[in-house]
């Protein structure tokens, strides 16, 4: 099962896209899916690229999440490549958070399948996802203010020395590794012994991102990483995100900031009302188009 079915479908899709490219008017591209229930046709038209077997790390195949009668997300099919930043945009309530929770193990999807590295995965908890190499930087950052930077970096992953049945924290090793984790990403922080409470918003974000990236993770999900930051701190955090990409990680970026999405991402997925509206390679789209896709104004504009 695994990838075959969706990729096969995508190949048809590509052929049809190429056929459509001859026309100057994007509306003339025929919808690749005949099943009208799957996606609204205007949405399907705009899916641009196919998952490329060699690079795709995460593949979400027709995932739905329902809470009782509330359909939070329906039939979402997206993917994220290694060494790329993949953005998910959409209005409040579009289902972005539910989608990332289905990926990070907080929710189990009601229907559909998540593939990691071509293998189907079933996460029952965030720890499951973490073990598989999926880390999430929450909007709240999940840092403990009264613990030091190194304690936060190693929270629930403490290194210990065993003394018979007893185990003691190996503080020296954790401090050393913490300094390495931060310096690898060129994060400048006065002292790893400082309590997180004393850090600025940008420094906290940097610590949270370093923690997410520092555990051999392959996919880092970031939920509005710069929403609470000033201009200069935002620039620093963006540099950090680009460094993760250059390290070959797949980054899934949730952001309201189109400017940022256009600057950082390689691939953009647009959601509206729990459904996928479309996807674009970033170089093929514009902030204006994204806005119209998000608000659903695209059709009217095209006319």
């Amino acid at each position: 099962m695994s990838f075959n079915e969706p990729i096969h479908r995508s190949e048809n899709h590509r052929a049809e896209n190429e056929a459509g490219n001859g026309s100057s008017h994007p509306d003339s591209i025929p919808p690749p899916f005949t099943d009208d229930d799957f996606l609204p046709s205007e949405a399907v038209r705009s899916i641009p690229a196919q998952p490329d077997r060699a690079n795709v790390l995460l593949y979400i195949d027709q995932v739905s999440k329902w809470f009782g009668n509330v359909h939070a997300i329906t039939d979402i099919t997206i993917w994220a490549n290694r060494g790329e930043i993949t953005a998910i945009v959409g209005d409040n309530g579009a289902g972005k958070s539910t989608l990332i929770k289905c990926i990070s193990g907080v929710h189990g999807p009601t229907a559909g399948q998540v593939f990691l590295d071509g293998k189907p995965v079933h996460f029952t908890s965030p720890e499951d996802a973490r073990r598989a190499g999926i880390e999430t930087v929450y909007q709240t950052l999940a840092l403990c203010n009264d613990l030091t930077i190194w304690q936060n970096l190693f929270l629930n992953r403490e290194m210990v020395n065993h003394w018979g049945p007893l185990s003691f924290l190996d503080q020296r090793a954790m401090r050393r590794r913490s300094a390495e984790m931060l310096s690898r990403l060129e994060v400048n922080i006065p002292s790893i012994n400082a309590r997180v409470r004393r850090l600025s918003g940008g420094q906290r974000q940097a610590v949270a991102i370093s923690r997410a990236a520092g555990w051999g993770s392959r996919l880092v999900i970031m939920d509005e990483p710069t929403a609470a930051l000033g201009v200069r701190e935002t620039a620093r955090v963006e540099e950090l995100i680009l460094r993760l990409r250059d390290d070959g990680l797949a980054v899934l970026l949730i952001s309201h900031n189109f400017d940022q999405v256009m600057r950082l991402s390689n691939q953009i997925w647009v959601m509206r009302s729990g459904r996928l509206v479309g996807g674009r390679r970033t170089q093929d789209t514009s902030g204006k188009e994204l806005v119209s896709m998000i608000t659903g104004a695209q059709q009217e504009e095209a006319l």
């Binding site: 908890s125 965030p126 720890e127 709240t140 999940a142 840092l143 403990c144 929270l155 629930n156």
Partner: peptide, 13 residues
């Protein structure tokens, strides 16, 4: 961690 920020502690498993 639990006393300082229960949500953060839970998020870290």
């Amino acid at each position: 961690a639990t006393g300082g920020d229960t949500e953060a502690a839970r998020a870290m498993g």
